[in-house]
């Protein structure tokens, strides 16, 4: 099962373009301001991961040419709010697959501790209601942009972002959608810091539009990368073996031993952007798109998960057809 990427969107502190994902850093960068990016209206009742996801998703849909407009909510003449955007393909043809492990944890914890502290539910704010179901991010994206295809929320641990990309290719292969918006989003907040033990977790989102090569060609959409060869195995060594061959570069999980893919240039994105949990795999695919856009050659491997986790997932990203191969980023 394979697909091509035709659009990328980022809501990453410190990176405004995919080409910066392997060179920039979140250190010292200002947080993403979702209200400035997509308008304040409609954000109040949403959690941080969903706000970030909406920004990245909007940009990916625009970049892929599936939608025009900035998708801000407007209220004209006091009526129901409308979304300033137009979908250019049938609503049923676009699926949404979101990956996030930690997105709604702060809301869940806030409500549970408030009940215990007060000895009842009197003090609970109804604003939390939609955030207590883990699929809030995927469904809010569908509602904002009017995407009526299959809507999946993948919460699958450290590999979750690459798993989400895999399920997008399954949806395409099975004919359930012609285009899939894949989003990885994670928030930084005190609950996440305490649960994961990470002082500076990723606070952002990355989005991709995936479709079949034929669907992209049919609407003359520029291809940014090819995606293929997903594997999920019990170990890092097993994953790299299953991916096969030797890539030109690889996007590595943070604690990857030096003897794995020796000599192949590696980008441990979490060193730059913080532990990214369910967003990592999507961020890696966006980084591969940036690598190709900057003239880098393929194939590039994306690998998420370590031997300390339940599994390690991998994906092969290839340079768009017609791009230079064989030179680009040399051996380090």
């Amino acid at each position: 099962m394979s697909a091509v990427a035709t659009g990328v969107g980022l809501a990453v502190p410190g990176a405004s373009a995919a080409t910066e994902l392997t060179t920039g850093t979140a250190e010292g960068a200002a947080p993403v301001d979702p209200a400035a990016r997509i308008g304040k209206k409609g954000l109040r009742h949403l959690d941080q991961a969903t706000r970030l996801a909406l920004c990245a998703a909007r940009d990916a849909l625009n970049a892929a040419g599936l939608m025009t407009g900035d998708a801000r909510l407007t209220t004209a003449g006091g009526g129901a709010p409308t979304v300033a955007a137009e979908l250019l393909v049938p609503a049923e043809s676009v699926a949404v697959v979101v990956s996030s492990n930690l997105g709604n944890l702060d809301s869940v914890c806030e409500v549970a501790t408030t009940i215990a502290a007060d000895g009842g539910t009197r003090l609970l704010s109804p604003v939390y209601a939609p955030r207590l179901s883990s699929n809030v991010t995927a469904s809010e994206i569908a509602i904002r942009f009017g995407l009526r295809g299959p809507n999946l929320m993948v919460c699958n641990g450290p590999t979750s972002g690459l798993d989400a990309v895999h399920w997008a290719t399954v949806l395409l292969a099975g004919g359930r959608a012609r285009h899939v918006l894949v989003v990885g989003a994670e928030p930084a907040n005190d609950v996440v810091r305490r649960l994961t033990g990470h002082a500076h977790p990723f606070d952002g989102a990355a989005a991709l539009v995936l479709e079949s090569a034929a669907a992209a060609a049919e609407r003359d959409a520029p291809v940014l990368a090819g995606l293929d060869g997903y594997v999920r195995t019990g170990s890092l060594a097993g994953c790299v073996t299953a991916l096969g061959g030797v890539p030109r570069a690889w996007l590595a999980p943070r604690p990857a031993p030096a003897d794995v893919l020796p000599g192949v240039p590696r980008h441990a994105l979490e060193d730059r952007w913080g532990p990214a949990s369910g967003a990592l795999g999507v961020l890696q695919c966006a980084a591969a798109v940036g690598h190709f856009a900057a003239g880098g050659s393929g194939p590039v491997y994306a690998v998420a998960g370590t031997d300390a986790d339940d599994a390690v997932a991998g994906l092969v990203l290839t340079a768009p057809a017609g791009a230079e191969t064989g030179n680009g980023e040399g051996r380090a």
Partner: peptide
């Protein structure tokens, strides 16, 4: 190892 949690 080929496990997937979907929160739908």
């Amino acid at each position: 190892t080929m496990t997937h949690t979907v929160s739908n």
